[in-house]
Design a protein around this nucleic acid. Sequence first.
DNA 1: CTGTTAGCGCTTTCAC
DNA 2: GTGAAAGCGCTAACAG
Lengths: 330, 330
Amino acid sequence: MNISEFAKHLNLSTGTVSRALNNRAEVSPETRQMILAKAEELGYSRDATARRLKTGKNRLIRLECLENSEVLSDFYLVELARAVEHAAHASGYDLLLRLSSQRRNQLDSQPVDGLIILYAPVMTEHDYQILTNNGSTSVVVISEPGFQNVPHASYIHIDIMPGVQEAFSYLASLGHKRIAYISSGSPGRSVREALPKLCGDAGLDSQDVVVVDAGIAVEDGYRAAMQVLQMPDRPTALFARTDVLAAGAIKAAYRLGLSVPKDVSIIGHDNIDACALIYPSLTTVAIDFPEAGALATKTVLGMIDDNCEPSVVTLSTHLIVRESTGPCPK
Amino acid sequence: MNISEFAKHLNLSTGTVSRALNNRAEVSPETRQMILAKAEELGYSRDATARRLKTGKNRLIRLECLENSEVLSDFYLVELARAVEHAAHASGYDLLLRLSSQRRNQLDSQPVDGLIILYAPVMTEHDYQILTNNGSTSVVVISEPGFQNVPHASYIHIDIMPGVQEAFSYLASLGHKRIAYISSGSPGRSVREALPKLCGDAGLDSQDVVVVDAGIAVEDGYRAAMQVLQMPDRPTALFARTDVLAAGAIKAAYRLGLSVPKDVSIIGHDNIDACALIYPSLTTVAIDFPEAGALATKTVLGMIDDNCEPSVVTLSTHLIVRESTGPCPK
DNA sequence: CTGTTAGCGCTTTCAC
DNA sequence: GTGAAAGCGCTAACAG
């Protein structure tokens, strides 16, 4: 049933029905009530497509998780998506999901009002024009600070440094001196570069801190830890860029007959839900993914509905101490 | 730019342009080439909303993950969603995601061509009419066998019994006799009911198998295992309905100073990605979520595009032996 | 092979 | 406070 059929049933014009359904003021309260009741009764609902065509508003945002980051992980996607979906639906927006970087047919791209991109690739002004349908789509990027790579976009920057600093200081407070940092590809550089300051503030000698590069898989963390834990003067604490790498490190420790945290302390990063599965429960630097998702959604909806200017918000991280860390062994 | 502006640029009619863009036969190859090239050059792309309104095809499917199941877990959602998204995009469909069961405004429901529902709730014919827009939306349900609760829907039934049988037989072959099954709410009943047969086929005495009910969280598995492992004649093997519960069971074993698998063997279920984080690597009954997702998508697209009749496909499971299981201790 | 045009279902301006 | 009608951008039927 379309609006004219429905209106005919009520002996009203499509205009009145439309106004009532849109909560316009110019329609009398009784008429509106009657229309609403009848709609419910007859099961009439407006065609969203036609509304979109007419109004130019899609009430649609897309969450885009590109596969080009060395820290992007399936493990926190649901947490993020849940927050985005919740916030979007609460504002009457529906959520499209794109997980793969498959080349899509530009000729047929689904028009959306807003775009939330996780770790956006570097983008030229021209790419941006295509992506945003000539600027008519608002975009917010969730990334680490410094990734200001999409023109006119808002950013939710997740600054991991506060949590990382906390972690180093915490390890220092436990008496650890020799520490290995297991990084995860290029984004790890920020920690590597900040190491002198990080160590200084923690009261550590940066000479005692070794940085090893790993990939993103558990096995990468396992291998990195295996290597580092078999060094002559092995570190007493391992700090990994992701919880996944930390899980690998724990496996390596076990394999070498080391006890965690008695022989070696291990700290992860991200506080993914799957942390709960690990034994011993993992001390980790927590990223608040639900907050990031909710904030990203709020930001993009603000740009869409209230014409907010692009903004940059930086989210912090903090250490959560659980059972995988302990005093430095003698 | 819309199609008439674009057509004007080329000194062609909108009809010709439309036909070219739709790969219709009646347009000359050169014209089509030229149109395609110009579209690329001028950055013209068709408005999907207008196409939808005209054609009645949304090229949209929705993945709906309702929060009403005791086995539904965030841990395999991404795997499933990835498969669905991949298959959908490959066929030119976009994917809407609904994770929460928030009451949505029926007056404004987003029209989709197809619906993939994970663990659908029981549904009356009337619910179905609303859900499917009077039957114009195809639906496929992913669930355990026996959940035929949506009228006219296709089903991807995941029959866990083959894998469960394998697991019991495998434990029997390792010499285990006293086994605890940690179930996860109501769906666990199927295993409880099948226990006599399961044990018979495995050569076990069902008297020796205890079933404990747990919830869905790691802590639930922990508590259940704690209880069971402190029984006078404690089981030598634990089999949990989900990997999450199994992870909890492993934690309990460790806490009690038991070694896995030397003192107690532990088997999980689902083979979620997060299994990789657990030590020792978890022997588990694998559900092929990517296959389920891909098949669900293929099925719903078949119903949409090729008018396929609703079908019921049953997917099986199988045991993956890793390191959390070993011979029964003396 | 190409051009012209009606109309998908809605919102919104303009009359009344 | 309500009705009539234009038109969003496209596709498809029809005409040539």
